[in-house]
Simulated assay, not measured.
Amino acid sequence: MTTDQDIVQAFAPTGKLRASINLGNPILAHRTAEGSAGGVSVDLATALAAQLDVPLELVVVDAAGKSVDVVAAEDADIGFFAIDPKRSASIAFTEPYVLIEGYYLVREDSPVQSNADVDSAGTRVVVGKGSAYDLYLTRELKLAEIVHAPTSPTVVKTFLEGDYDVAAGVKQQLEADIAGMTGMRLLGERFMVIRQAMGVSKSRGDKAAAFLARFVEDMKASGRVSEALRDHGIRGATVAPLA
């Protein structure tokens, strides 16, 4: 891709590319041993900054909702989010680059045996506030009660401390959180596919959105996304098909 100065100005009006990085999604980002942010989203942000020939600045947050907010408020220039209709009011999304799965977690002795059992009166489902699966389940569940944990990484803690019925989240996060515990089980099927994409504020214009969309397709086609997943030891996530 060639990069004209209008595009550079649209993405980096401060002279830097400010990328919002959500540490609440372990598939995409994590805290390194040195204390900085690393992961698939950081690798892609680094590649985009190189394409634009500008320095990269990471705006690190701990929850998906906060990541959306900083990009919508233009306190960051790009972000990495799950696609959701509610977020589309302010964010122009690319097609997804990674697909991950949302699962339910229950106690071993729970009467909840399948996804269909979750949406029942009196069932309390813990979700990470502002997460993609929060937005999705808030629309889809008609009878169950949604309970908000502050962030996705605190879902299992909230679930256990509050003696709630179901925890919902990214499969790998749930598995990591219950590692070494007994008396817990994931239900046998996903409740949603979470489509992880890049996004830019719609205020940056159609040319910026189109440029970012092409960038993501190039990253998938060139193998950079699969390479990043491999480099960071991510399992259970797949590269999204080319648009």
Score class of each variant (00 low, 15 high):
Gly199Ala: 13
Glu175Asn: 10
Asp163Phe: 09
Gly183Trp: 01
Leu187Phe: 04
Ala210His: 07
Ala179Met: 06
Gln172Glu: 15
Glu175Thr: 06
Lys207Trp: 05
Gly180Asn: 03
Gly188Met: 09
Arg190Val: 06
Arg214Pro: 00
Ala179Lys: 11
Val193Tyr: 10
Leu174Phe: 06
Lys202Gly: 11
Phe211Glu: 08
Asp177Asn: 10
Thr182Pro: 02
Gln196Trp: 07
Ala210Val: 07
Met198Pro: 00
Leu212Pro: 05
Phe215Glu: 04
Ile194Asn: 14
Met184Gly: 01
Leu212Asn: 03
Ala208Thr: 05
Asp163Met: 09
Ala168Ser: 14
Ala176Phe: 02
Thr182Val: 14
Asp206Tyr: 00
Glu217Leu: 07
Arg185Cys: 03
Val200Glu: 07
Val193Met: 13
Val166Glu: 09
Val200Asn: 06
Leu174Pro: 00
Ile178Pro: 00
Phe211Trp: 00
Ala179Gly: 01
Arg195Phe: 07
Gln196Pro: 07
Ile178Gln: 03
Met181Ile: 06
Phe191Gln: 07
Ile194His: 08
Gly199Phe: 08
Asp218Ser: 13
Val170Trp: 05
Ala176Gln: 13
Phe191Met: 06
Lys202Ser: 10
Ala208Tyr: 00
Lys171Phe: 05
Glu175Met: 11
Phe211Tyr: 11
Gly199Pro: 08
Leu212His: 04
Arg190Gln: 13
Ala176Val: 02
Ala167Asp: 07
Ala208Ser: 04
Gln172Leu: 15
Gly169His: 06
Gln173Lys: 08
Gly180Ala: 01
Ala213Leu: 12
